[in-house]
Design a binder for these strands. Structure first.
Ligand SMILES: [Mn+2]
Ligand SMILES: [Mn+2]
Ligand SMILES: [Zn+2]
Ligand SMILES: [Zn+2]
Lengths: 167, 167
DNA sequence: TTGTGAATCAGCAACGACTGCAGATATGGT
DNA sequence: ACCATATCTGCAGTCGTTGCTGATTCACAA
């Protein structure tokens, strides 16, 4: 575990400080987020929340996740797996992404030499640097046959993540 | 200009070699792709194609772009700007992305030191490394006021690219 | 407690990007 | 010219996400 989102109590205070109300829905979502160190999608958070609160709406999950992102308590990433991932790790870091199942794993390593040389920047002002390493996770790599062909959708697959493969 | 997609004639040969037919639609699209070194979206290619061939369908544009990607003559990237970008530059390189207008610019620089250390890889097999530098392009940076606030949608804007800002 | 107004929620329609489908059309070898 | 089939067009459908709106709930005060 590297760094998780703040505790439900702390997030509650943050919301209250901003003059916002506290609701059972937010409490439930805060607890779920605090209990995971993965990179969940909105849909995954929704499924989790529904277990405790069957009437919660997907709309509210998106709303709350967006609020937390706007407050800087959660980061949103788009690694091209179809839906946005929400990252509780606020420390600067990079990611490994499985091309097959969509699993996302932190790479808490700093690469100080990575910078855009003046001559190619063309007036661009760089504020963030995101590195995505793509490949196969340990689980998906095992599905490779001796002849090198994979037993799963190969190149431009839609790589729909397997259930629970939201890490 | 770093590297453009192959000429219409060469692409035609490639298609014919694979037993595929040549059509006016493909010819038009090949010409458009060969004439741009930017990172166009399917929609942008469609608008261009429509000028010469008003009846061409967006479906055909997607089809052809997908075909070229499958043949390795074009690369597809998702930099989180809403729609896929198609990249005629097949040489390994990275990208600068404007958070405001969505402009994409090549960074033809190799960073040999960027690798995932064994201890954090967790069994992952890395096949590609993509670096995205985010910030503001020269044009969008000019819209900043003296007090530091921007005159455009700030943080979580939908960053709809300006028209023609497809570079 | 009870009242009040604003914040929030649930549900559903709509949206943008993209794909599946099927009937119409065009290609290229004979 | 003829035919088999690759391709094209148009449209419906999917997926992730957001807009809208009436109903509900919270926070605070009377
Ligand atoms: Mn992360
Ligand atoms: Mn490029
Ligand atoms: Zn995997
Ligand atoms: Zn810009």
């Amino acid at each position: 575990m590297v760094l998780a989102v703040k505790s439900p109590a702390e997030l509650t205070d943050l919301f209250r400080d901003r003059g916002r109300k506290m609701t059972a829905q937010r409490q439930a979502l805060f607890a779920i987020l605090h209990g995971t160190e993965a990179h969940p999608t909105a849909e995954w958070v929704y499924e989790r929340a529904r277990r405790q609160m069957p009437t919660i709406s997907l709309r509210t999950v998106y709303q709350t996740l967006n609020d937390l992102v706007a407050m800087g308590e959660l980061e949103q990433l788009d690694v091209g797996t179809g839906s946005a991932r929400f990252d509780p790790n606020l420390a600067p870091h990079h990611h490994l992404v499985c091309d097959d199942c969509g699993r996302v794993q932190d790479v808490p390593v700093d690469f100080p030499d990575v910078a855009v040389p003046q001559e190619v920047a063309g007036g661009f002002t760089v504020s963030t640097t995101e590195i995505v390493f793509r490949g196969l996770c340990a689980t998906c790599a095992h599905g490779t046959r001796a002849d090198g062909t994979a037993d799963r959708a190969p190149s431009q697959s839609n790589h729909h993540p397997h259930k629970e493969c939201h890490a």
